[in-house]
């Protein structure tokens, strides 16, 4: 199952990049995230690992993820090491009129597949879409609010 959502943020791409790739910010703006901890020696960049949990339904679901793509200030992608199979990506692009288009992609699958796997993927998608929408809105609010305050 793959979910993609976008939003336009009135902030320069490097500023958005710094914000979304700083693990200290994830619990602030990622709706439903209950844990986002650095696991290992690197806190950001290629090979950085995080222990991540998202509250979905009745459980905190996630595991250990590792950054597998790091192209500042455009693309950052991660893949799961343990826990639920997942792949996530932040994709930032300049807007012609200024500002940044922020795209968040999240692909996941449950182990074993089968009928229960298919159903649970679809049921989870309903929660995740809502959470990711609010995540992007939080991001926009944080960055545009910060700039206004500055």
């Amino acid at each position: 199952m793959r979910i993609e959502q976008s939003i336009e943020v009135d902030a320069p791409r490097p500023v958005v990049w710094d914000y979304v790739t700083d693990p200290a910010n994830n619990l602030e703006f990622m709706h439903g995230a209950t844990r986002w901890e650095v696991a290992g020696g690197i806190d950001r960049g290629l090979g950085a690992r995080y222990r991540v949990l998202l509250h979905i339904g009745s459980a905190d679901v996630g595991g250990l993820i590792e950054v597998v793509e790091w192209s500042p200030p455009g693309d950052m992608a991660w893949s799961s090491v343990t826990g639920i199979d997942q792949r996530g990506r932040w994709r930032l692009r300049d807007l012609p009129q200024g500002g940044t288009r922020v795209t968040f992609r999240f692909a996941y699958g449950v182990a074993g597949g089968g009928l229960w796997g298919l159903i649970s993927e679809r049921v989870a998608a309903r929660w995740l879409r809502s959470d990711f929408r609010r995540t992007l809105e939080n991001l926009k609010r944080a960055l545009e609010g910060d700039r206004t305050l500055a």
């Binding site: 979905i56 339904g57 009745s58 182990a111 074993g112 089968g114 796997g117 649970s120 049921v123």
Partner: peptide
């Protein structure tokens, strides 16, 4: 791990755990 999906469905939808 392979049985977590149905347990999650039951826990989340039936028992609203």
């Amino acid at each position: 791990r392979e049985n977590l999906p149905w347990v999650w469905l039951l826990s989340s939808l039936w028992f609203r755990g």
